[in-house]
Nucleic acid binder design. Structure first.
Lengths: 340, 340
DNA sequence: TTGAAAGCGCTAACAG
DNA sequence: CTGTTAGCGCTTTCAA
């Protein structure tokens, strides 16, 4: 590797501690290994000694023998969509609870993905969690998780990897049904990344339900990004079609769209036009936006992800879609209804 | 440790590769060590063989001998303030560029901090970056970084640790001067975490400048949090004092405050009341908010942090304050000026 | 420059 | 239950 940082001073080793309290080095190791065969008295004596002399087992050394690192690689590509940090935060906390560490990888479109993720291999992480990282091609994805447990969140893949997503079909259906129920008939759609599988799924689930209900698609826009700006521009693009509602592929798009509709187009929401998103990020609940959206079941998604990393043989790869929850707020409202 | 995850299948070792191409195991090691004494030809032959057979050096094993992990512990406590994920993203990318990995720690107020950060020690991370983690007491902080390089960002400490902050004094002065320049004289202040050193510094820098300019402090509010909701409530609390401007300790507070002022109090910004924040998060630039704020020099802060981790002896701990930049947007405006 | 050999600190058989 | 003994895969002397 490189020699960027100098060698820090050495902490005490199990052998030193063993010598200090007159037991074998192996005994020290056992004292720190739950379930190993050691008498409670000996263990207690050793743990007390460890506290006294400040001994901590060296995880690096144990990795070498056990071939387990207890490190999970967390691959993310875009922290500017608030949905992602929210997810990262929960995942990291959950992993910590299980005694697992999170090695964070931020993949960017520029450099070669394999170079960016090489540490997944050299550091031998036990498992990989990929969070909506559309930057990764199918090949990259396969390379990154090769030979280890993996969970892909909010992204679909043809690889033999467990994927966990919010149920797009249910979500889009609930949203469209809601728009229908409040009397909207002319709907525009702002897509995010149209070439991602999940993006396409959201789009097609949307158009399918729209057709089933006999509603009109007044137009589709996309700037190939999940950003406020993309939502802003996308919303304005759709106005020519005179929609009475716009559905956005993600909340962050919807926020940009709402501001554009209000400030650039001078429209009232929901009186002139209804707006809905998908995700339920914290900002969607802010009073200024009060965005109707489909809430991703974050907690369940995290729990399910964590359950892949517990003892026993690796679960067979599965593609899991979890139902979310329609959250109705002020951005949608029955047409002609004047109460806010 | 635990036995959560089963042993994955073993990758090729340097010894195996050595046997395969008929060189010594040490030669393989040297081939992957920049600057080691090995002939270009041998190295080339070995690297070619490595590519062919898919050999990758095992970082774990090398950690054991070199006692360097090339892992940096990144300690964060609150990802819901957008300033933090923005910082984490840049830090991680910067570290990756240097060939360093980021082990992410999410400290929460609940559990014992030492338990949450134990991996800093057992995994022997080379250095620690603490990001505004006010959850950590001074004692926790000292414990966490003991014996290794460390940088504390946006937090002050009495410990002998390098701290890197945006220059609070300059920032607050610039903001107050600006409010003064546009004719505001009655200023309210919404604080975040009042018991943090940086919180107190911002507050006192603010009041100092206010007094120097002979402006009136109409009130101070705080809900001990950097959140939208805390800003919302804080802003409303201040209205009794009839301020013509409110300064918020952070942008996220200001956003909540602005929405409260507009939607709950029915005020116009900046006509009825001016608003300013501190940080310049992405949302501050959204047209709906157009928040005047003091931009933290994130890029410089990250570069400076990274420079602490480059070759050579550890730089002496220093307390560094970097000037930011006043960003004037629509939320502040000359009193009586009607153009937007 | 290259190879042989001795560990790094720990876990995991294997005896006792 | 406890101690002894081999390694884990690599880096780093030390000779050649």
């Amino acid at each position: 590797m490189n020699d960027r940082l100098e060698t820090p001073k050495r902490p005490m080793t199990s052998r030193q501690l063993a010598a200090l309290i007159g037991v074998s080095q192996a005994a020290v190791s056992r004292a720190f290994t739950p379930g190993s065969s050691i008498s409670p008295e000996l263990r207690e004596r050793i743990l007390r000694g460890a506290r006294e002399f400040g001994y901590q087992p060296n995880a690096i050394a144990s990795m070498l023998t056990t071939r387990r690192t207890n490190i999970i690689g967390l691959v993310v590509s875009d922290m500017s969509n608030p949905f992602h940090p929210a997810m990262v935060e929960r995942l990291t906390r959950g992993l910590q609870r299980l005694g697992l560490q999170s090695l964070l990888f931020n993949v960017t479109p520029g450099a070669r993905v394999e170079d960016q993720l090489i540490a997944i291999r050299t550091y031998n992480v036990d498992a990989v969690i990929v969070l909506s990282a559309t930057v990764l091609s199918e090949r990259d994805l396969a390379w990154a998780v090769e030979g280890r447990r993996a969970v892909v969140l909010n992204r679909l893949t043809t690889q033999d990897i467990t994927t966990i997503c919010c149920d797009t079909g249910l979500g889009m259906r609930a949203l469209v049904d809601h728009l229908h129920a409040i009397g909207r008939r002319r709907i525009g759609y702002v897509a995010g990344l149209t070439r991602s599988a999940i993006g396409m799924e959201r789009h097609s689930a949307f158009t399918t339900r729209l057709a089933e209900l006999g509603m009109r698609l007044t137009g589709t826009a996309s700037y190939e990004s999940h950003s406020y700006e993309a939502g802003w521009k996308g919303a304005l693009d759709l106005l020519a079609g005179k929609p009475d509602a716009i559905l956005f592929a993600t909340d962050i798009l919807a926020l940009g769209g709402m501001d554009a509709l209000r400030e650039a187009a001078g429209l009232r929401i929901p009186e002139d036009i209804a707006v809905a998103g998908f995700d339920d990020i914290a900002l969607a609940g802010w009073p200024h936006y009060a965005l109707t959206t489909y809430r991703q079941p974050i907690d369940q998604m995290v729990e399910l992800t964590l359950s892949q990393f517990t003892a026993g043989p690796a679960p067979a790869p599965a593609h899991i879609a979890i139902p979310g929850e329609l959250v109705i707020r002020g951005s949608t409202q029955r047409l002609g209804d004047t109460t806010v």
